[in-house]
């Protein structure tokens, strides 16, 4: 398989990610972390694929895959929602201008 593709994909996104991540101020580090929680739920894609692939197998692989889907989805939905809750506090009217 094309090993280079995977290495470039991983290193490239890590590098691009670092450039944008380090611009996030300390003010927003907690929402950043909960946002990262949501993004780590990206495993839901692999879990969904596993659930589909386990069709026709016994109940256990299907159940485990469904569990993985639920766990990852809790991260996705919970992560984005709680981040939104926090960021709304910063966007409120009367909470001043953008810091320089």
């Amino acid at each position: 398989m094309n090993a280079l593709f995977w290495v470039v994909l991983f290193a490239g996104t890590a590098a691009v990610g670092y450039r944008v991540l380090r611009a996030v101020p300390a003010l927003l580090h907690t929402p950043l972390m909960s946002g990262m929680n949501a993004l780590s739920g990206i495993t839901v894609l692999a879990a969904l694929a596993a659930l589909g692939a386990a069709r026709g197998e016994g109940p256990w692989p299907r159940t485990l895959a469904a569990l993985a889907v639920a766990l990852a989805m809790a991260n996705v939905v919970g992560g984005f929602l709680v981040t939104h809750r926090m960021l709304r506090m910063f966007g409120r009217r009367g909470n001043g201008e953008e810091p320089s």
Partner: peptide
């Protein structure tokens, strides 16, 4: 963990997004 699992099942999206989460952390 998400990035490595993505690589294990040959799905590029978790690799990319997981790499960013790893970097942020």
């Amino acid at each position: 963990a998400a990035a490595v699992a993505g690589f294990a099942v040959g799905n590029p999206v978790p690799v990319a997004v997981g790499a960013m989460v790893g970097t942020g952390g």
